[in-house]
């Protein structure tokens, strides 16, 4: 018996989400009185692999195969299925990202194992295996019961956090069999994108209002947005003044946004502005006026001068990202 974790790396370094997945699996393994096996595909050196032990993985299956450089849904599913069989996995954990979404459903069929995607927290019950996930586009939460002996979950990123539980990890080279007919898709070209995010697609939006004083102060908004991978927006007076382009105008008569995080910098929050952002999952307000209506809508607020707060926020985010 074991809990199997599918880890991901980027140019040989584990993504932070891999440590989160192992931490999550470790917590479950404790309850089940079993151990965590992590699977790594790609060129990752032993020092890096050993890091997984810090978060509770006692065994690491190291797969290095020329055919598995890029994601191939069928072949990766085979690798996971063979690893699960070998380790007697009763739970397999993926990240709820493009890769997890591609492989987990295939593996679910291959192993006839029930799948819960985008889970938010540890299972609330093990008999039967019950776990919470967002449904109806985050308007509700469902408690999913998995009815099969083996369960698969994909964990929403940042839903659990990273926790250290150091154990001695053994690294084991794992050479699963890959059939030729599982290698039908081929990656022809990889294009790493950078650059501006479409405002309506952005998961994080940094937005400025009249409290920013003038267009010359927008450098800090853009810097924070770049750091967070966010889009930039503004209130109506700002676009009316011509400080920012019209496309950024957010509110009743402008763009209607529903990002995960909306950071309102120097925006008082007139009702017409709030109408354009009320779908946001988390709103942060920075404003001098403690009675500004934006604080009614906000989850977190700082009463203070936005031109002083923003640079400090940038520093704090840099520190966070540096970790």
């Amino acid at each position: 018996m074991s809990v199997l974790v599918y880890t991901e790396n980027w140019d040989g370094k584990f993504k932070k989400l891999s440590f989160e997945l192992v931490s999550f699996a470790c917590e479950i393994a404790k309850t089940l009185n079993t151990n965590v096996v992590a699977l790594s595909i790609g060129k990752v050196n032993d020092d890096e692999l050993n890091k997984l032990g810090t978060y509770g993985a006692s065994k690491i299956l190291n797969v290095q195969n020329e055919n598995l450089i890029n994601l191939n849904n069928q072949a990766y599913t085979s690798v996971l299925a063979q690893a699960a069989a070998k380790e007697g996995a009763t739970l397999i954990v993926f990240a709820h990202n493009n890769t997890g979404k591609a492989i987990a459903p295939r593996l679910s069929v291959r192993l006839k194992a029930g799948l819960a995607t985008g889970v938010l927290a540890l299972p609330s019950n093990f008999q039967p295996f019950t776990i919470a996930k967002k449904v109806f586009t985050a308007k509700a939460i469902a408690n999913v019961v998995i009815k099969t002996p083996v369960s698969i979950v994909t964990l929403l990123q940042n839903a659990f956090g990273v926790f250290e539980t150091p154990v001695a990890a053994s690294i084991e080279a794992f050479n699963p069999e890959i059939k030729d007919n599982e290698l039908k898709t081929e990656v022809k070209d990889v294009n790493k994108v950078s650059g501006k995010i479409l405002l309506t697609d952005a998961e994080i939006v940094v937005s400025g209002g009249r409290g920013m004083k003038g267009p010359e102060n927008w450098g800090s908004i853009e810097e924070l947005a770049t750091l967070l991978g966010a889009g930039t927006a503004c209130s109506r007076p700002v676009s009316d003044e011509g400080w920012r382009p019209h496309e950024e105008h957010t509110g009743q008569t402008g763009k209607i946004l529903a990002p995960n995080l909306y950071i309102a910098c120097g925006i008082s929050g007139a009702i017409q502005h709030l109408g354009g952002i009320s779908g946001s999952k988390c709103i942060v307000a920075i404003n001098k006026d403690p009675d500004a209506p934006i604080f009614e809508a906000a989850d977190y607020g700082i009463v203070g001068d936005v031109l002083k707060v923003l640079p400090e926020m940038i520093t704090a985010v840099k520190e966070l990202k540096g970790n």
Partner: peptide, 24 residues
């Protein structure tokens, strides 16, 4: 293989949490 056993609605919005401007 699975069943949506029960549903919950998200908790209503809590009041704005104020943070000290000296502790960004």
């Amino acid at each position: 293989l699975t069943e949506f056993a029960t549903y919950d609605l998200p908790k209503p919005k809590a009041a704005c949490k104020k943070i000290d401007p000296d502790n960004v």
